[in-house]
């Protein structure tokens, strides 16, 4: 709480200026204000450590001005074969495609393993064997199979994002309230209706946890795969900037990945709120 008294409607007539300042249209929510303060604080600290005091030298991490110059360079002239927009779009497109392939296969498999003990008995051993292999370990094989193009990237993302989708959907199905399933059956629901109207909505919250993890895994593996070998993309920018010993450009590429990761996660959150309206 801030120390200012809240303006009551009666006060508005006495102090019209205060009332105008507190009108709901103008008012920024507390969260946004704290968020802005945090961003400004980080920026100030960055500036303080680089330009002002020189604690961090320009060869280690760029000062705001160098960062801005690198940003302008890649945004307008381009770097490592494309402008920021084309490189970012290239990576985002691959993440979205890999992510969609992963959830389009992972969610149905998770449902199947959750619903059918036979499917679980059949698939779980293979799953337990493949699961501990870090997704990044698939990159060499993917490149050997499919080269440096899009197909290898999508394959690697699929390996990484598939597992959290399966596991969380499966856990979600197993966690559906048994009484709700009994209630559906005693009111005459068949298997298909049970799946569609009870089991799937009941496991949606866990499913979305899986989707968020899958999306994170998609970005992680894509950037890693692009670092290992790619023609375009933000990982390729990182790799080129590393070879050129260009810390400002490395920082720009990192920040771009961060922003895109946050934005795509936001999209999943929006979809979650749309699809789970009963959890207000």
């Amino acid at each position: 709480m801030h120390g200012l008294p809240q303006a009551e409607p009666t006060n508005a007539t006495i102090r019209p200026g205060a009332a105008a300042r507190r009108s709901p249209g103008w008012r920024i929510s507390r969260r946004v204000r704290i968020g802005l303060a945090s961003l400004i604080g980080t920026f100030a600290l960055w500036w303080l450590l680089t330009d002002i005091t020189g604690v961090i030298g320009p060869h280690r991490f760029p000062a705001p001005a160098e960062f801005w110059a690198a940003f302008v360079q890649i945004a307008i002239d381009g770097y490592a074969g494309g402008t920021l927009i084309t490189q970012a779009w290239y990576s985002t497109r691959l993440v979205i495609m890999g992510f969609l392939v992963a959830i389009a296969t992972g969610v149905p498999l998770g449902l199947l393993m959750g619903v059918s003990h036979r499917a679980e008995a059949l698939l779980n051993p293979a799953f337990l064997l493949v699961r501990p292999i870090p997704p990044l370990a698939w990159i060499p094989l993917a490149i050997v199979w499919l080269g440096l193009g899009d197909a290898a990237k999508i394959l690697v993302i699929w390996f990484a994002a598939f597992v959290p989708s399966v596991i969380n959907t499966w856990t979600g199905v197993r966690g559906v309230d048994r009484t709700l399933i009994a209630a559906a059956r005693v009111h005459g629901a068949g298997e298909l209706r049970l799946l569609w109207e009870v089991i799937i909505p009941g496991s949606l919250p866990m499913m979305f946890t899986g989707l968020r993890l899958s999306l994170q895994a998609s970005w992680t593996t894509l950037v890693a795969a692009e670092l290992v070998g790619a023609f375009f993309g933000l990982g390729r920018v990182l790799d080129a900037a590393y070879r050129d010993i260009n810390p400002p450009m490395i920082a720009v590429a990192m920040l771009a990945v961060g922003v895109l990761g946050a934005l795509t996660t936001r999209l999943v959150a929006v979809a979650e709120r749309r699809l789970i309206p009963w959890r207000s």
Binding site: D177, T179, L180, A183, E197, P201, I276, W278, R279
Partner: peptide, 9 residues
């Protein structure tokens, strides 16, 4: 049922 068992969605 005792726990109502209404479909929350």
């Amino acid at each position: 049922f005792q726990q109502f068992a209404l479909f929350p969605w």
